[in-house]
């Protein structure tokens, strides 16, 4: 995978990463597509650096692990992701 490289400023990097993250919200399970799209529409633009990092970490989960966490059937073992999960769960 290439990055913005020498042509990129921090701003370009950020746009790229946000674009990439937006696409990573496309999942194999419809339930996650719906929850993540709702989240993107409501909160994505306002996320700070730490929240973006947390989102990136969460998006790396497998679908079959992520949906039980978001739907509240399973606890997330990483405390620093719990705030974000609450935001995702809010209907």
């Amino acid at each position: 995978m290439s990055t913005a490289g020498e042509t990129g400023t921090m701003e370009v990097m950020e746009v790229m990463d946000k674009g990439r993250m937006r696409w990573h919200c496309r999942r194999g399970l419809l339930e996650l597509d719906l929850v993540l799209t709702r989240f993107l529409d409501k909160h994505f633009d306002a996320l700070d650096g730490d929240s973006l990092k947390a989102l990136q970490e969460l998006l790396a989960y497998d679908d079959t692990d992520l949906w039980p966490i978001i739907s509240g059937r399973k606890d997330c073992e990483k405390p620093h992701l719990r705030g974000l999960i609450e935001l995702l769960r809010a209907p």
Binding site: W23, R26, R27, G28, L29, L30, D62, D63, T64
Partner: peptide, 12 residues
């Protein structure tokens, strides 16, 4: 693939 292979809809 448009998405990472293990995120294909077969997962459902």
């Amino acid at each position: 693939s448009k998405v990472f292979p293990t995120r294909s809809h077969t997962v459902a």
